[in-house]
Design a protein around this nucleic acid. Structure first.
Lengths: 336, 336
DNA sequence: CTGGAGATCGAAAACGATTTCGACAATGCG
DNA sequence: CGCATTGTCGAAATCGTTTTCGATCTCCAG
């Protein structure tokens, strides 16, 4: 067991070894001026020799910056929160900031509890990761530090919200299918209760209309976000609209299920029917049969962007409104 | 924006309102004796009135307990770390402990960096979540606080490691198939380089042997942990060992792929061939066609157990060695 | 040689809690 | 009543750092 806690290296030790006062040592290490270059070098050498690490608690207590942020997620076990979290954590660690993780499981009581805990811990700011469905209650009124909302919309227009660009992603997908000369493009997606499902359905129609086309089957097919619904909806579609030659699916699970059902019905993918998914959940998209063309949400970058905006806010540069992160089309065999 | 940081409620405010000294207020709030019941009540009332929340930084600085632990993961975006993390975080939050999350991405340099950061932050302990494949380098020599290893094995036998009980889980799966009167049971699983794949393959043979059976096809089929390999291996199996009437798969993706291939080959699941997966990754297992019988790893409980052991270690009750967490069989249509 | 400016440094206060220990009052016992 | 014991409270030390501000030193112009 390394050094015991009691005999950790403190600034006092460094100062003693360097032959200066604690104050000077602090200034030397924190790159303040009013300390001679030669003195600074001596202090730094001493610090290195003792492998000194400042006690962040005391630092935060005095300087008001704890170099820690709270990351509040609604449902961590979903598909979206993790990449966002990884992106944010990565960007923050570059700035020597730590992440305190709390998952509310969609429970308001837990959220309040965590919020208070994190505030008692004096976090410098918050990143709130929602589930992109409903708008997220604004917390800005309750907290004295900056917050950035990711993958959800705050109820307060003065907050900064970062979301994936559903309209742009939809355009990428649908125009890709149009470029493949598909004329009968259908849309299978998730429940109408999801904002993203509604937005992308609307966008699908708009893009088709721009190119003088209309949705195959007339209506988007709304159901669950599952393979099962994908299979079911694909069978429905083939029965009611046999001329369909492309399907744009609301996520990769639906796409995977749809592909499976089409193969069972004797349609070739992509020759007879091209399929495009949404989300680029690699485990589904790349391992499906055939591998799926899909829209990547750049979630990791979304997290990084959130972290950068939060860091900027800590420096006083606040932004607000809804920022849309562009998507990226990943082409695989299901439309090749 | 709630209360500004500068005018946060401190113990001084509570003491003043209650008409006692700071020392007494501290004792009253922390439930120490040597304070009269009536005084304590007055202090608590004052604290409640001001909605006082102690500054954890100062607490940690003096009392040596920061009520925060570091959670170090090797790869957070894998399938295993998240449920473990959720379980641990839940158990810890009951004790008002926070989780500092760091993902090393399997990189030793990042791990060292995070380790130092967390130590500078004076965390009370560590939970190390590995990827269950290789043994994890022991960190105990470098850190002055307790650590618990989850889903991996430490190189140091004095460390406490919590893993899923592969042998028990395998027994559940295989004996379930045997109870269904299956005689020709095959095993499709992941790469031999994975310890869990090897252990479960060995256990499969042992359980079959206990019941006077042997592995259909003679050898376990090792490949990738993917649907693609599941499809491929299932086709191989039917070609070389047509009498196969059950397949125990190393994970749910392989099982899902195998089921898909079998259906395409005209075999009915489960009537002709029963299938059991491993891991109970709901998104695959429950949404597959047909839904998969599988072995649940109780990962969330594994995380909770880890948290409890860590809390015990903080109180001085250390344990060591490898603890195996029992699994649970989830029966769905693929073997019903 | 003198005086003021600028550079460099350290003593001490501050941050918000916990903990130790001495002071004091109330009580019990002989 | 006198003395010891117990119960209650608060002054002060402590933790490791940052920050302020006064002290000292150097150096150069007048």
């Amino acid at each position: 067991m390394g050094r015991r806690r009691s005999d950790a290296i403190t600034l006092r030790d460094v100062a003693r070894l360097a032959g200066v006062s604690i104050a000077t040592a602090s200034k030397a290490i924190n790159n303040r001026d009013e300390v001679a270059a030669v003195t600074r070098a001596r202090v730094l050498r001493a610090a290195a020799e003792l492998s000194f690490r400042p006690n962040v608690l005391a630092q935060g207590l005095v300087a008001g910056r704890t170099r820690a942020i709270g990351l509040l997620t609604d449902e961590l076990d979903g598909r979206f929160a993790i990449p966002i979290l990884l992106g944010a954590e990565n960007a923050l660690s570059h700035e020597e900031m730590s992440v305190l993780l709390c998952d509310t499981r969609g429970d308001a009581i837990r959220r309040d509890h965590y919020l208070r805990t994190l505030l008692a811990r004096q976090v410098d700011g918050f990143i709130i990761v929602g589930d992109s469905n409903d708008t997220h209650l604004s917390l800005s009124a309750d907290i004295p530090v900056p917050a950035v909302y990711v993958h959800c919309r705050s109820t307060n227009p003065a907050d900064l919200c970062l979301v994936s660009d559903d309209e742009g992603g939809t355009r990428l997908a649908v125009e890709h299918l149009i470029a493949l000369h598909r004329k009968h493009i259908a849309h299978i997606t998730g429940p109408q209760s999801y904002r993203t499902a509604r937005d992308r359905a609307t966008a699908t129609r708009a893009v088709l209309h721009d190119h003088g086309l209309r949705l195959a089957g007339g209506q988007p097919l709304h159901g669950e976000w599952s393979q099962h619904w994908g299979r079911h909806a694909a069978r429905l579609l083939v029965a009611t609209t046999p001329e369909v030659d492309a399907i744009f699916c609301g996520n990769d699970q639906i796409a995977s299920g749809a592909a499976q059902a089409l193969v069972e019905l004797g349609r070739r993918v992509p020759d007879d029917v091209a399929i495009v998914g949404y989300g680029n959940w690699e485990i589904f998209a790349a391992d499906s049969k055939p591998p799926l063309t899909t829209v990547d949400l750049n979630l990791q970058q979304l997290g990084e962007t959130a972290a950068r905006h939060l860091l900027a806010a800590l420096d006083g540069t606040t932004a607000s409104g809804v920022l849309r992160q562009p998507c990226r089309l990943v082409i695989r065999e299901s439309s090749a």
